[in-house]
Design a protein around this nucleic acid. Structure first.
Lengths: 196, 196
DNA sequence: CATCACTATGTCAGTTCTTACATAGATAAG
DNA sequence: CTTATCTATGTAAGAACTGACATAGTGATG
């Protein structure tokens, strides 16, 4: 084929395979806790929707919209579903690892430990917040035990990854805070009253 | 300032803060296990090095090179070190989460479980391989217990993150394989000999 | 002796993505 | 009554990045 579908295209198809949506709703669904793994701005989603449309992988019906343009409710076509099914089991291409916090960590030896502690505490709070969200969602999905072949199975599987990811991240942040704290006060391990 | 430094610029500075390097060497150091968190192609690194040079954050000396051009050994300037130090403790901007394997997982309910198992087994092998690398590196860095203020502290901290990340990933892949296996053979939990 | 991998720099076309701009109705909060 | 937020679509400039091309010496493998 002349035009290849970018990964975002498949992310869009993955959303549409569950429910017909407007471009705006697709963006929202990708920001939702269970599906927070390929976020994109609405402008990029609109661009890629047009390409999916040209490739015949999606279609749409119109409805009156709030703005000057009509609202377009997109749905996946049979060809789109085929393409998505085929793509799912293809080996993922090696991802470029890009993590700003780890990069900062790599250069952390140059900076002020106290400022670093503050930064990691903020990161820890974020991760703990998301972890709580995921754990609540997990509790309900685990009881349900969704069967393979239903969309809820996909939710559960992605959620499981998010859950253990946030756990690992929070643990690592705590470890960093510990390391940085003991570098501020090297005699922490002596732990006897300072005003004896 | 008119031109902002992209994150890759700081990744380059982080490498140069440890040792003077050619553009080629920077790319290599960013591919190295301990620093696998902001990879980039050499073409992008050359582009950003020129911008860092224009901003006065790096300098270079030349030496005879293998190709038609001279080899340029870059080093970080005092201004570059200042900029890097300042950047390190600034809160990281929210990262766009993009994970192709998790995206495939979200759509996994549409595909063939056997093919998915094969895909996750491959992913598991990759993660276990990197985990073994990281664990070996960790054993040596832990004995050393590098002090804050030395580059080895940065190595240790980044390595720690990579280590627990690969652990979480490998665990998740194993969990996925279990889930998918039991969907293939739903009576696995009965576990009595099939040829009794 | 040929071929391959490694070292080393650079350009260029094209893709992907971000950010800002532009429009506009409904609904809720202050 | 004003302001903000949510719904909803789109354009356009520019940043960031990929992948292919181009050049060329050294050293190792076969």
């Amino acid at each position: 084929m002349s035009s290849t579908i970018p990964t975002l295209g498949f992310a869009i198809l993955s959303v549409l395979a569950r429910a017909d949506s407007t471009g705006y709703e697709i963006a929202g669904r990708m920001r939702n806790p269970v599906a927070r793994f390929w976020t994109a701005s609405h402008s990029q989603i609109h661009t890629d929707l047009r390409r999916l449309l040209e490739a015949g992988l999606v279609g749409y019906t119109t409805a009156p919209g709030p703005g000057p343009q009509e609202k377009k409710i997109y749905s996946i076509t049979a060809e789109g579903l085929d393409a998505l099914r085929k793509w799912v089991t293809e080996p993922p291409r090696p991802q470029p690892e890009r993590d700003e916090l780890v990069l900062k960590t790599y250069a952390a030896w140059l900076a002020d430990p106290a400022a670093l502690i503050a930064m990691f505490r903020t990161a820890l709070r974020d991760h703990e917040g998301r972890l709580a969200e995921y754990e609540a969602a997990w509790a309900s999905v685990e009881k349900e035990a969704p069967a393979f072949g239903t969309p809820r199975f996909g939710n559960m599987a992605a959620l499981r990854c998010g859950l253990t990811y946030e756990r690992h991240r929070a643990d690592w942040c705590r470890w960093m805070i510990d390391q940085l704290s003991s570098s501020l006060n090297p005699s922490w391990d002596a732990s006897y009253p300072s005003e004896a």
